[in-house]
Design a protein around this nucleic acid. Structure first.
Lengths: 348, 348
DNA sequence: TTGTATGCGTTATCAT
DNA sequence: ATGATAACGCATACAA
């Protein structure tokens, strides 16, 4: 591998001068500048980023710690992160932490010296291990509970979004509204459940335990939960799934069981992944700007990196938006609810 | 930040000894070993990976260069890569290259010194820029044309998979079979188109140019292409989409147009993303082991990394499998085709 | 068993 | 305008 020394020797100058033209730092005569540029290019010299970051103590790299996410949420959030990172000259070092909590710690340790900051997503409510991390390095917590931690955090307006969707279902006349919950111990899942219960309480609907089905954020989980719901003596008339993947599984189960959507059963999801509008029927959902979520997380982190983290702790919350499509059906015959939400049809 | 020097001073030993216990290299007395471990832990010492890799010339990191992929393909292939990498103690440095070809070169340059090898996905057929990369570093080309390049490569059996699917449609009695093509200039897209044409020719079906619609691997693209197909004087009776996302868009367009699937129109996709089986009707597709694809790419790369690339060039091809669900309908009434393929129903 | 010293490739601080 | 040299944090050959 050709190093800066080789270039210096070939150009008959010192490494200092080579470094100066490469980084455009300090004065160099036009002649030597041209010469060195030419030699470096001819020798196909590429600076060794590792060595450079050792002395500058800047890696131009951000670490990303994610749980084992599936589907479009993962790709979208990474897209947002990478866009913003790349625009600011940063790279992304991605690590899917193991399920166990020690995994995230070892991952954090391994990132020492290779990243300037970390975006960590640790949705397990009881994963307090993050607290022990040497926060000498800027950290942004994403979609995670962060009580007490002195780090920036970014979350989704889960509770409010869920509450609005359930409220909408109530406004359509539904009183038996089921929920397919997210993974146990998951922060987003807990918040969405909270919004669901809040809306029911506000509507004066007494909660029915069997209507709260367990799920795990996967299509298969939504499918299974729906089968269970259909087996109930008193079926619900609406299903609110805590994310779109489960809602899609629910649609599949209902179709197989010959239950008409939305006539016999209204279905709503959460996230509004790009696929939602292409479902049959198109899926009503709570829109989450996933890409922007990733982008904003990196923005926050970059701020912490450039300002050496000497700012007041930030807690931001990205807002959601109700997107009503056909899977929740029309308003009840007797009355027209106010339409403050976005109504959308497929258009490409 | 606490360094190895700090630990050494605190433990009243030399840095060499500290290094020895940390890496378990060389002989150390049990007493000093215990002492140093205790001190290092107490001081929350974490080795600086950057400095370490400078001297060992090993970064324990693999670079991943991807185009701007969407949806489940991206997340699945990353999952496979990260699983295998992590199992071997490696990290993933991910970069989405810009569309332009110079982007991939700058990305490669930026990775110098921070990775031990690179998995590059450069599906643009005319992106010969990869050829110019300083291949002093091991490279595995993924889903890319690689004629002439002296690097390992891993591709999908696109042609064979497409051919089998179209052959299946032919066996069902279809003669007017449309294709929604992938992105222009894309290697996978070109190969799948080749398989499509091959199957038609083998069946003695004369190709009809309007039946070859352009697409871009997105749901919206599949939707638009299908609208165009439905406007044809002579409609096709089957649509083969070059990937599942487009097939999903096609299903959506057909549904809106009131065209029954599979009765009036058979639909098939490619990739068999996890969602495919939850479509309405469940989508027939050509199964691609996406996760394994990523895993295998990393395996090949790790081989190159540990063996310093001194092996004969490898070109591997992961095989596909026909997965027939309801979207392609039943066999024609007059005759029963041999069922050599996998038939599957939703089971969770 | 332990310590000293060198070097990895680069930038930064002095000189000149 | 240019060069010599000290760091950066660590691993390792060699000495003790």
């Amino acid at each position: 591998m050709v190093t800066i020394k080789d270039v210096a020797r070939e150009a008959k100058v010192s490494v200092a001068t080579v470094s100066r033209v490469l980084n455009d730092s300090g004065p160099v005569s036009d002649d030597t500048r041209r010469l060195i540029s030419e030699v470096a290019h001819r020798m196909r010299y590429v600076p060794h980023s590792g060595a450079r970051s050792l002395i500058t103590s800047k890696t131009q790299t951000l670490g990303v710690l994610l749980p084992d996410l599936y589907g479009e949420f993962f790709s979208e959030v990474i897209r947002g992160m990478d866009n913003t990172a790349q625009r600011n000259g940063f790279h992304l070092l991605i690590s899917r932490s193991y399920a166990d909590k020690s995994g995230i710690e070892t991952a954090m340790r391994a990132m020492r010296g290779r990243v300037d900051g970390v975006v960590a997503m640790s949705p397990d409510i009881d994963a307090e291990s993050l607290l022990n991390l040497p926060s000498t390095i800027p950290v942004v917590l994403l979609c995670s509970v962060s009580r007490g931690h002195e780090v920036d955090s970014l979350t989704i307006q889960n509770c409010r979004g869920a509450r609005e969707m359930v409220r909408h279902l109530v406004s359509l006349g539904h009183t038996r509204i089921a929920i397919i919950k997210g993974s146990a111990g998951n922060y987003d899942a807990a918040e969405r459940l909270r919004g669901y219960r809040m809306a029911l309480r506000e509507a004066g609907i007494v909660p029915d335990p069997p209507l709260e089905q367990s799920g795990n954020f996967t299509e298969a989980g939504g499918y299974a939960a729906t089968i269970d719901l259909l087996a109930l003596r008193e079926r619900p008339t609406a299903i609110f799934a805590a994310n779109d993947s489960m809602a899609i599984g629910a649609l599949s189960a209902l179709r197989e069981s010959g239950v008409q959507v939305p006539e016999e059963m209204a279905v709503a999801g959460f996230d509004d992944i790009p696929l939602a509008r292409f479902m049959d029927p198109p899926l009503s959902s709570v829109h989450v700007p996933i890409c922007e979520l990733g982008a904003r997380a990196v923005e926050l982190l970059l701020h912490g990196v450039t300002h050496k983290n000497d700012h007041a702790r930030r807690r931001e919350r990205v807002s959601t938006e109700l997107v009503i499509r056909r899977s929740t059906g029309a308003e009840p015959a007797e009355r027209s609810p106010p339409r403050t939400f976005k109504r959308e049809t497929v258009s490409v």
